[in-house]
């Protein structure tokens, strides 16, 4: 037991020392150390003294009036908590040192607060195009993916060519990197001079490219969903005189769609992030706008703004997807 407490104490003390050393390092990176800021950094480092709380609780637990077994278990639990708490503090200290190293090189290149503040309105304005592209593309993909999935599942020898064509489409667009598909479609097609493509707005071309690329993935999600519905459901429906299409429409697909919401959401998150790829076609969406700003200021902080915007819209959705997956897992475990 003393081994765990010693280890915990050593880890916490080591972390506290590191915190003060890092604060000193950061102050040393300043060209003209601001005494107020330096004091603030040291005070922040002093917060790490709170880590000692865990090993202290561990020692106190050893002296509690509980039975020996419970005392030892409590002491070990608190010792381990101390070690666990050190991990995020180490990571934060590492980040602090990384950003401030080389005279705040990383901080100034990627996280220049004044530049971020100044250029954020432009980047956010351009981000509107990303939102426009992914909302339209998701609407298209939702329908197109189902159409392709049903084509791949179409029964009978007459539908064999349709199945083949749908399978070929899925294979091709899952093989082509999205960035290449976007470049060929959104940048390449207007170059052909064909009337329909020449007149399409860059936004719609981007939607087309992403919808074709993601339609292939989403059709696989739909297909897995349809195939996960037990055949007895289709048998019950057919036995009542409903046709194949009626069975799909009223019995199989509605049940499949409920099941595939979480994986569908994952693909949509991925699609949203890939709207940044549209920049290769020259559309001035958020990423391209940020790169233009970066070019004029020799500083990438505006690109960090783009990253922050994507983080902002993505995290709520990933949490939602996780919750839905968890709900489905619980449901399938209780068997209802």
């Amino acid at each position: 037991m003393l081994r765990w407490i010693t280890l915990s104490l050593a880890a916490c003390l080591g972390t506290i020392v590191s915190a003060f050393l890092t604060a000193g390092f950061v102050v040393g990176q300043m060209e003209q150390p601001d005494p107020g800021l330096a004091l603030g950094l040291r005070l922040a480092a002093a917060l790490s003294l709170a880590l000692l709380w865990a090993p202290l609780r561990s020692l106190l637990a050893l002296r509690s009036p509980q039975s020996a077994r419970i005392r030892l278990a409590d002491a070990k639990e608190w010792a381990l908590r101390g070690i666990g708490l050190c991990v995020p503090v180490w990571l934060a200290l590492g980040a602090e040192a990384f950003v401030s190293a080389n005279g705040f090189a990383v901080g100034q290149t990627l996280f220049e607060p004044d530049l971020i503040r100044e250029t954020a309105p432009m980047v956010i304005a351009a981000f509107r195009y990303n939102i426009e592209i992914f909302v339209l593309a998701e609407a298209v993909v939702l329908v197109w993916g189902l159409v392709v999935a049903l084509a791949r599942l179409a029964p009978g020898p007459a539908a064999a060519p349709i199945r083949f064509a749908a399978t070929l489409y899925c294979d091709l667009f899952r093989a082509i990197p999205t960035i290449v598909a976007v470049y060929l479609i959104a940048f390449g097609l207007p170059l052909t001079g064909l009337a329909i493509f020449r007149d399409l707005s860059p936004i719609l071309l981007a939607v087309l490219a992403l919808a074709l690329s993601y339609g292939a993935y989403v059709s696989e999600v739909y297909r897995a969903g349809v195939q996960s519905i037990h055949w007895s459901q289709a048998a019950a429906s057919r036995s009542l005189g409903l046709s194949y299409l009626q069975t799909m429409r009223h019995v199989v697909v509605p049940q499949a769609v409920r099941r595939i919401v979480p994986p569908l959401l994952n693909d949509f998150i991925s699609l949203q992030k890939d709207t940044a790829i549209v920049s290769v076609a020259g559309t001035v969406e958020a990423f391209n706008q940020a790169k233009i700003i970066a070019g004029t200021h020799f500083n990438l902080s505006a690109v960090t703004t783009v990253a922050l915007l994507f983080i902002l819209i993505t995290i709520p959705q990933t949490r939602l997807a996780d919750r839905l997956i968890e709900r489905d897992r619980r449901r399938s475990q209780t068997g209802s």
């Binding site: 459901q233 019950a236 036995s239």
Partner: peptide
């Protein structure tokens, strides 16, 4: 078969309700 099944119903061991 759809016409046949409108005249012949079946109930399954495992109910198969929707």
């Amino acid at each position: 078969l759809n016409a046949l099944r409108r005249q012949v119903g079946i109930v399954f061991q495992s109910y198969n309700l929707f």
